[in-house]
Nucleic acid binder design. Structure first.
Lengths: 225, 225
DNA sequence: ACCGGGTTCCACCTTGAGGGGGAAGGGGGC
DNA sequence: GCCCCCTTCCCCCTCAAGGTGGAACCCGGT
């Protein structure tokens, strides 16, 4: 059914990431990267002139985000199918993108083999969802939560880069000493960062940090590290 | 994480089909077929005596069908996960099986490589759905339909009822004193229970309890209480 | 009657966690 | 240069947390 190669477009604001995907995909004879774009507007314009089968689309981008770009691309008949790529396993983005017409949803740390098969599935009209997201999807489906909910944004905005690193490790259940070892810091430094995390997020102790991390989607059950 | 092989049980009334699956799976060193059954009743009895990690379950079977067998198998704590296999892409069966506690749903014509990765995904706690079914699932979800939900929480191995109560509150970020107040207990009692929880689950502190609770699905993000 | 497990609570002890306060280097903005 | 913020690390202090051991009660099975 697939005699021709699948023509893929990469849409992501990070060039480095696009380069990585291009390298992975170019290793496969059945796939060819025929176009790239750094934001949603460029992506929508490109699919008008270049023949594309599948779009790999980042969610977070400047100018126009992936959800809106997906909606515009899918609004055109015979247009390419869109496969969403994100860094975090955020359900809100996933569902918004799927409602906008995306055919699937994958994490950026997807193994190359899975990426290829996902592209093939999408191209043949099927939908794919990252395993970890599928589980949540099924849970929502089976339990049928009130849903439709507009979940709150992950407000870790006030946190510095270092603090976010510490937060993630706290959320994995590590002690201050273990975190210090992992980040090659003194325990005192870790305690300083953690103290600021607690203050900024209005949390009391590390256990609440773990709760916050899961509830906000910063970490997700069974996500690769 | 997966040093041991994954122990699989095949449940299908057609011997020929079991033989086919057994051959495919035996080619993989990470998977071992340790049991087989020709109907739901036999399957339920077998999982009581044989250690099984993943059950490949047919839906249509004499005596007891796969949906009911799945429900019974999943009602036992620490029981194996169930992956549903069907010949036709019938949504009704898929959804019924998923509601009964199945971790996934595949067509019998699944490529061997996909079957193996599906078994591994299910074994590691993720859910898998055949691509074509995923698409229907998403379509249904996008419209969000109503459905009668029977959500049963996963039962913990070894933990007593009281310990599970304490565990849930710990997983919500409460301190020992707060838990004591909520359950109308002395703090000493809460500490006793928590101590046993830590010992039984091989955890170090309450932060790891929170991680465990989320990872095992005892508590889930966005759940109203 | 006896035993075992669950639940409740106590006292005692040790340590990691968290808060307060300070200090020093580096880098970006003005 | 100066200031601000991030990052790094220190000391001191307090207390919740976790570990150990013991005890009492109830209930169900032997």
């Amino acid at each position: 059914m697939d005699d021709r190669v699948i023509r893929v477009m990469l849409v992501d604001d990070q060039e480095l990431l696009r380069a990585g995907f291009r390298m992975v995909l170019s290793a496969h004879p059945g796939i060819e990267v025929v176009a790239e774009a750094g934001n949603g507007v460029a992506a929508v314009e490109t699919v008008r002139t270049v023949a594309v089968d599948v779009v790999l689309m980042d969610v977070r981008m400047p100018v126009m985000d992936g959800v809106e770009a997906t909606r515009l691309i899918r609004s055109v008949a015979g247009g390419p199918r869109v496969l969403i790529l994100t860094t975090f396993d955020l359900d809100e983005y996933a569902f918004a993108a799927l409602k906008a017409g995306a055919s699937g949803f994958l994490l950026k740390d997807v193994p190359p083999a899975d990426l290829v098969s996902a592209i093939q599935s999408v191209h043949s009209g099927d939908a794919v969802v990252a395993p970890s997201t599928t589980r949540r999807l099924l849970e929502r489906f089976a339990v049928h939560l009130p849903s439709a909910g507009t979940a709150e944004p992950p407000v870790l905005s006030g946190l510095t880069a270092r603090e976010r690193e510490v937060l993630v490790l706290v959320a994995r259940g590590l002690s201050n000493m273990e975190i210090a070892g992992r980040l090659e810091l003194a325990e005192a430094t870790v305690k300083t960062h953690l103290g600021r995390i607690l203050a900024k997020l209005s949390l009391r102790d590390r256990a609440q940090v773990v709760v916050y991390a899961y509830e906000s989607g910063i970490v997700t059950p069974h996500s690769a590290d």
